[in-house]
Amino acid sequence: MKNFLLIAILSFLIFSCGTGNKSFSGSSQDATTKNDTVRIANDSLEYEIIIVEPGFQSWLVSQPPRGFYGQATLEGKNRQFVAEYNNRVLQPNRFSRNLYAEQINYDPTIDYGYEVNYLLYNYFLYFQEKYNQKFIAGRN
């Protein structure tokens, strides 16, 4: 699979960002996780992104709707976000390994489509807000 590494990294990133923050009973956590799981897949390009982050779905509803930003805008922002994120992965002495576990393989030459770029962009915004991180491409 061409983008298996991207899938694995994003999955690991997402799982590592939201674990261990609070204690919940098993049934409440399972219900929250099911409600806050976003899956994007395209079999022809062989990629899949799964975002499992409690609160992301409800936060996403409050953001500008799909179509508000053009795909080119989202791709440009995502390139900046991924570059900044990967930069932080390479600096474990400055940035927490719990937040910045592995690099993201986002290839700007691949057309991931609007939905992937929209959700990835919004996930980076959510990540910044939830974990009090400031990225160069983030909105202020």
Score class of each variant (00 low, 15 high):
W59T: 09
R88Q: 13
Y69I: 06
V52I: 15
K77L: 00
D43A: 06
L74R: 06
P54F: 02
R79A: 15
V61N: 07
F68G: 02
V61K: 09
Y69G: 07
Q80Y: 04
K77H: 00
I50P: 12
N86V: 07
F68N: 12
E84H: 08
Y85S: 06
Q63D: 12
D43F: 02
R79C: 15
G67H: 03
N87S: 15
P92F: 03
S58F: 04
Q91G: 05
G76P: 01
V61L: 05
P65D: 08
G67Q: 02
Q91W: 02
T73W: 07
P65N: 10
Y47N: 09
E75G: 05
N87C: 11
Q80W: 04
L90E: 13
F81H: 11
N87H: 13
E48Y: 05
Q63A: 04
G55C: 05
E46Q: 12
V82E: 12
V89A: 08
F56H: 01
P64Y: 03
E46A: 13
N87I: 01
N86P: 11
S62Y: 00
V89C: 15
A83M: 00
P54T: 01
Q80C: 07
G76V: 00
E53S: 08
V61P: 11
L90G: 11
K77V: 01
V61S: 05
L60E: 08
P92T: 02
S44C: 07
I50W: 07
S58P: 06
F68M: 04
N86G: 10
G67D: 04
E75W: 01
W59D: 15
E46G: 05
L45W: 08
E46H: 11
Q80K: 15
F81K: 05
R66W: 01
P64R: 00
L45K: 14
L74G: 09
Y85L: 07
E84Y: 03
Y47V: 10
I50V: 15
Q71A: 07
P92G: 03
E53V: 00
L45R: 15
E46V: 06
N87K: 11
L45N: 11
P64H: 04
R79Q: 15
G76N: 06
E84S: 14
Q80T: 11
S62D: 15
W59G: 10
V89N: 07
P65F: 01
E53A: 06
G70Q: 11
T73S: 13
L90H: 08
V89H: 03
V82L: 06
Y47L: 04
Q63H: 05
Y85M: 07
P92N: 04
N86T: 09
S44T: 15
P54W: 00
R88H: 13
L45I: 14
L90C: 07
E48P: 09
Y85N: 11
W59R: 09
Q80G: 03
I51L: 11
L60H: 02
V61H: 00
G55D: 06
S58W: 05
N86R: 04
Q71L: 11
V52A: 06
A83H: 03
T73Q: 14
E84P: 02
P92I: 03
Q71V: 13
K77W: 00
I49P: 12
T73C: 03
Y47W: 13
Y69C: 10
V52Y: 01
Q71G: 05
P54C: 01
D43Q: 11
I49Q: 06
F81I: 10
F81W: 08
Q80H: 06
W59A: 12
A83V: 02
F56I: 03
A83L: 01
F68A: 13
S62C: 09
W59E: 10
V61D: 09
F68I: 01
L90N: 12
Q71K: 09
